[in-house]
Amino acid sequence: MTYASTVSMKVNGERRDLEVDNRTSLLDALREHLHLTGTKKGCDHGQCGACTVLVNGVRINSCLTLAVMHDGDEVTTIEGLGQPDNLHPMQAAFVKHDGFQCGYCTPGQICSSVAVLEEIKANLPSHVTVSLTERTRISEAEIRERMSGNICRCGAYSNIVEAIVEAAGTRA
């Protein structure tokens, strides 16, 4: 381990000190070092979204960023959102609407969904936002557009959108 660094992150509210190979992605730091395997490796190239986590409240593909770039950051993974018997409302909505099948893209879908609602609330426009001068509103079109970086090969999209709409507490 010639090219290693120490990094300190707050992961799911808990401070974690790690010594990692500088080449270690945030994804592999979570999965292989911290054994938080809820965050999934689908492509390791930023193409599928399965590794989506929240860093300082913003969603990112954890495979596209190195762990050493996150010293001092706050990382929230699927394990930090909720646990069995104490589900986050988005997790509960996914179960209710059967917004998954094999489950492998699911943690990424859920982390992304949580962030999408925040992005809309913060009035960040997307490709389908009709007007930049009016407030961005939650709609199925906005959700579909903003979730399109999270691939679900089982094809649960129609159910996922229903789950997100319900979790948003809005009839779109």
């Binding site: 809820g38 909720g82 997790q91 943690p107």
Partner: peptide, 15 residues
């Protein structure tokens, strides 16, 4: 509803 739904949505299902 899926009996493994909570495991899958919380990242506890082990692949």
């Amino acid at each position: 509803h899926r009996i493994d739904g909570e495991l899958k949505t919380t990242g506890r299902a082990m692949y």
